[in-house]
Every structure is written in structure tokens, then in C-alpha cells.
């Protein structure tokens, strides 16, 4: 067998160029370019565009979400295909937990702050 996964031996395998590897390399490069653009966008907004905070914060949030999706798609290879459902569901469930814990904590603390300080 010439397949690398079957090799339990200690010998070093001969390089095997494959079409999949080329496709994956292209995916990483594309993801890297997109991530650079989004990062530059976020920092550029703060450095050069003097927006009011009420506009700036949602814009930063949207850019961050977009970059998270780019990283998941191109660097962690998670997409909507059927064979990756379990992992996607795990990530969605974790996101739900995070949303409840972070959102709930901030809501309660903000509310308490308003009541106690005013």
C-alpha cells in the first residue's frame, strides 16, 4: 500500500503530490487573504474612521463574526456539508451555551448596575 495513513512503520514516506492538497493549499491562501482584509478593516475603522461608538461597536462585532466564519471555513475546515454535521452541531451547541452565559451575565450585571448606581 502506498497510502500514507496505512504506514505504521518508522520509515519516512515518499512525498505524494495530490489534487486534494493543491485544493487545500488554495483554501488556506484564500482564507488567509480574507482574514487579512477583515483584520485590516477592523483596525482601519478604529484608526482612521472616527465613527461614533454606537456605530463602531456593531461594525466591529460584524467584522469579528465574519472573520470567525472565515477561520472556521478555511482554517478549521468546517462547513455545512452533511458529513461534518456532528462537529457543526457541537460548535452550534457550544455557541448557544456561550450566548446564554455571556449574554445572561452581561444582562444581569448591567441591570444590577443600573439599579444600584442610579
Amino acid at each position: 500500500m502506498s497510502d500514507p495513513w496505512t504506514g505504521a512503520s518508522t520509515r519516512i514516506h515518499r512525498p505524494q503530490p495530490s489534487a486534494d492538497a493543491t485544493r487545500e493549499r488554495r483554501g488556506y491562501i484564500r482564507g488567509f487573504g480574507l482574514a487579512l482584509l477583515l483584520t485590516a478593516g477592523s483596525f482601519g475603522l478604529v484608526a482612521f474612521a472616527h465613527l461614533p461608538v454606537a456605530v463602531l461597536l456593531p461594525a466591529l462585532g460584524i467584522l469579528a463574526l465574519a472573520q470567525i466564519v472565515v477561520h472556521f471555513r478555511y482554517f478549521l475546515d468546517i462547513d455545512l456539508s452533511r458529513s461534518k454535521r456532528e462537529d457543526l452541531q457541537l460548535i452550534q451547541f457550544s455557541s448557544l451555551l456561550i450566548l446564554i452565559m455571556v449574554g445572561g451575565s452581561l444582562w444581569i450585571l448591567y441591570d444590577l448596575d443600573q439599579r444600584m448606581m442610579s
Binding site: M1, D3, P4, W5, T6, D20, L76, S83, K84, D87
Partner: peptide, 12 residues
Amino acid sequence: FQHPGINLAHAR
């Protein structure tokens, strides 16, 4: 494409 991350080619 069974798991996330780079998939290695599996024969077994």
C-alpha cells in the same frame, strides 16, 4: 471529508 481539519487519506 469525515472530520474537520485537514483530512488525511485513509485506506483502512
